[in-house]
Amino acid sequence: MATDNKPAVSIKDMIKKDRILNSGHRMCAGCAAPVVIKLMGMALRGPTIVCNNTGCLEVATTIYPYTAWNLPWIHVAFENAAAVASGIIEATKVMHAKGHFEHEHVDVIALGGDGASFDIGFGAISGAMERGHDMVYMCYDNGAYQNTGIQRSGATFMGQETTTSWAGSVIPGKLERKKPIAEIIAAHKIPYVATVEPSNYRDFITKFRKALEVEGPAFIHAFSPCPRGWRSATGESISLSKLAVETGLHPLYEVINGEEWIMSSASKNLKELKPVDEYFKTQGQFKHLFKPEWADFRKRIQEQVDHDWELLKKRCGVE
């Protein structure tokens, strides 16, 4: 791995940084997850081990006999990367003390999609955060169980159509709001929680590096567009990610020790939010919302987003 310890945020440094995920992986064309991983790689600082929950990223990067990973990498199951990481962290420390493991410190990163993180593996994350293992857990959130064929998860937006939250004649897609995962993890009072997305890449890399540097657990919530599931143009994944910030659907912020809320400049500098309609109209999964019968429902979604945005601004001390 890279011996260069600095995070790479300029293009000239980035192209020199060791690549952690090679080409030849089988993520769909236009999937943002490999970009999320690339940006994570730009933040690395030394020996690193990656634990990956089951999901698109896990499956499509390690189809035997090929692996796209240049880092030591382990997948065990869908819901347990945080627990696997707990074991790795504590084992390497003990083994190093006994002279059985060379490195005094290894950065251990656990990765999971939104299904693994918001839903099935939530308990394992909560436990790992509470126990204080020095890991970074990153959820790449593409808004549904895309790997199994676009089923709703706790991360699915209100109004989003999935194969288990169909938009029908009486139901306009998912009726429930998205679980505020970063807030919930921040409530564990861990040293560092941040939301990121790939278009604001410098912000992403800087935050990921902070997450590595704090002592104790850190949680990164990365937004990650999925053209296949969202029925969006493959070329638009990064711009959609930006639009999610601009509409307040994925605001960027940090929470230090569960108490100090800091709004990141990409969100803070917004004079006002763009209407969620602008985001919705880019994707097939929201197109039903523009039927006249769902106008009120769409309005309710906007009100919810506005409400959450005001609350976040207040928390972050932003006027």
Binding site: S23, H25, T61, I63, Y66, A68
Partner: peptide, 23 residues
């Protein structure tokens, strides 16, 4: 004749798998 348990011991060997044909 293969490593145990599905371990892939050559890092980043997905380079051998060309995805250009998807285009």
């Amino acid at each position: 004749e293969i490593p145990m348990a599905g371990n892939i011991i050559e890092p980043g060997n997905s380079l051998k798998y060309k995805t250009g044909g998807w285009r």
